[in-house]
Amino acid sequence: MDLNTVMEIRDARDPAPWRPGDAWLGGGTYLFSEPQPHLRRLVDLGRTGWRPFARTPDGSLEIAATCTVARLSRSAAAMTVPAAPLFEQCCRAFLASFKIWNTATVGGNLCNALPAGPMISLTAALDGRCLLIAQDGSRRRVPVTAFVTGAGRKDLAEGELLRSVTLPARSLDCRTAFRQASLYGLGRSGVLVIGVLDPADGSFALTVTASTVRPVRLWFPLPPTAGALRTAIGSAVADDEWFDDIHGLPEWRRHMSFRLAEEIRRELRDRGER
């Protein structure tokens, strides 16, 4: 879609004061999908040269905001860590064409803050932290679970930039289990639940997304019982936080979240006992 109110596109490497009507341009799959009458200038991140996918000295994984879904998929395929399969599962949850895969970015998916955003699911489940850079150069780190605050809402100030998401080394060494449900064979995720079992200390984490307006991550020092897990989910998600749109009623999303969470609990428990 043409954005006929945009009068200028500026390279992000060229310093210039941020002004009303500016927006960061990553892949642009959302920006160009519908009218944006409030925009006057786009600040293009395409030539920043950020490494899309890099291991840090402590073994953590830093994913640049400009990393595309296709690049994430290719890079993760070469990883040998136990959590590697989860990357491809979440990439496939887009159910998008190759054009979207090669254009859409990890950062864009997080900043759109849509409940069904699979990059939110991936990074929240693996305890990711967002690096945010303000216009004055100051930096802050925010957990993904705190960055996305609701459907379409995020903790991002005017002009602030999501630079990257870092996944700790410990999370990459965890066993994972993935479940997704949709009302249609090739429909948008109505429920997406991920379980993570840490072999180092036996702790268990469950992340619920798509069915809720924000990512919900629950951590347990040991795998919980079925009743304890159900109680924890019910306490963590308020009645009005079960998402409601044409892709699923709140009652169905809630029911499927509990069901898939129990499947994951059993799968990771059984794997941990082997």
Rank of each mutant, 00 (worst) to 15 (best):
K99V: 12
L132Y: 09
T103V: 05
G150H: 15
V193R: 11
I194N: 11
L172D: 03
L172Q: 03
R179Q: 13
N102I: 13
L172N: 07
L192I: 08
N112D: 14
T123N: 03
R140F: 11
G190W: 12
A169G: 02
R140E: 09
S171Q: 06
I100Q: 04
A125Q: 05
T176W: 07
L161G: 02
F178S: 04
G152H: 10
L132V: 15
R153D: 06
T176N: 12
V191P: 00
R179P: 00
C130M: 09
L122Q: 09
V196T: 10
F147T: 04
F98E: 06
G128Q: 02
R179V: 10
S182H: 06
V144A: 07
D198Y: 14
L161H: 10
L197S: 07
G195V: 11
I133G: 00
R170L: 09
R170H: 05
L162G: 12
G159C: 12
Y184L: 14
G152R: 14
S121R: 00
L167E: 07
N109E: 01
T149A: 13
I100K: 02
T149N: 06
P115K: 15
K99P: 02
R139L: 15
T149I: 05
W101Q: 09
K154P: 00
G185W: 12
T176D: 12
R141Y: 05
R175T: 09
K99E: 08
I133N: 07
S164Y: 06
A157S: 14
Q135S: 13
R188Y: 09
R129F: 02
D127V: 10
T145P: 04
G150T: 08
L114N: 13
L162F: 02
G128V: 14
L197F: 03
L110F: 01
A124M: 14
L167P: 05
T149P: 01
